[in-house]
Amino acid sequence: MLFAAIDWGFIFDQTLTQVFGLNAAVYAIAAIGLNVHFGYAGLLNFGQVGFVAMGAYGMGLSITLWELHPLLAVLGGMVFATIFALLLGVPTLRLRADYLAIVTIAAAEIVRLMARSTALRSVTRGAEGLNEFIGPFREYNPFNPSRAYGIGLVDYRGSEFFAIVIGWGVAILAVLLVWTLMRSPWGRVVKAIREDEDAALALGKNAYWYKMQALILGGVIGGFAGMVDAIGKATVQPDFFVAPLTFFFWLVLILGGVGKVWAPIIGSMIYWGLITFVQNLGRQLVDQGIVPTSVMDPSQVDQIRFWIVGATLALLMVFRPQGIFGSKEEMALDAR
């Protein structure tokens, strides 16, 4: 039997570990921000990874450069993300939606290039990234770093578990924040602007300002994704923040269902389950020689993720924009 050599137990263990792991929490938080942007305010943000980077660098630099208290460092991450939002929003939010898309995708890549540049090396440590900020956070870790902590079938090291708890905590708080806001009159205005900006203007709502607020809110939430990631990995690496990452967040959002408040969390778990399963299976197939190296060598297995993400993103957007669990009727209203 061809598949006999596959270690299914290992694959399932890996998959489950990722479903509840740090990455899933980080992606979920970033996608919650994106949900505020696209799902509720209709803002086409193609550079969410830039906000994530700003959060991570804002927090990291607050400690490495200015030696702030960790809580103030978190504030630093929020400030960085806010500045980034203003920088992108001021020129584009009065214009048609696609201008924001163009500027965000460009700006996010620029953030990465600047962070890794040798010119700013004295500040951002270039391609090496920030590695010396984690100390103050470790002091607050209630878990034993060398012990394993389990949730059900999976377990994590104490050092990582701390970040995972923070990550899912932040994700849930962010969901509750968005839920509260979107049921308030503020959320009503934001949704109205998504539906028709002119109508909102004619009803006395300052559409530009509300869009700016939504951009900042979603951006700061994205910044938290960067901070959680940095705490979990004890490093801020510029090349983590590559452009495709934004579209992984998009896929997470669309999998869960655009404009649904829990969608990013569900979407992120599905995403990480799917991707980890496929990649581990692919790796084993190649390692065992079941897929010959003339077709794909081990180094290429990781590229599969981009094909899956790209294709799924496009197909879902066309055929099931309401997400895996969304209802059809709601989309039928969308005559745009």
Binding site: R188, K191, A192, E195, D196, D198, A199, A200, L201, A202, L203, G204, K205, N206, A207, E330, L333, D334, A335
Partner: peptide, 21 residues
């Protein structure tokens, strides 16, 4: 939007009902 707050509101030829609200 300021005009609307001052008391001048308008409607549109192509109705702008906010369909998903």
């Amino acid at each position: 939007h300021v005009l609307a707050r001052k008391g001048m509101v308008r409607t549109f030829q192509l109705t702008k009902s906010l369909t998903k609200l």
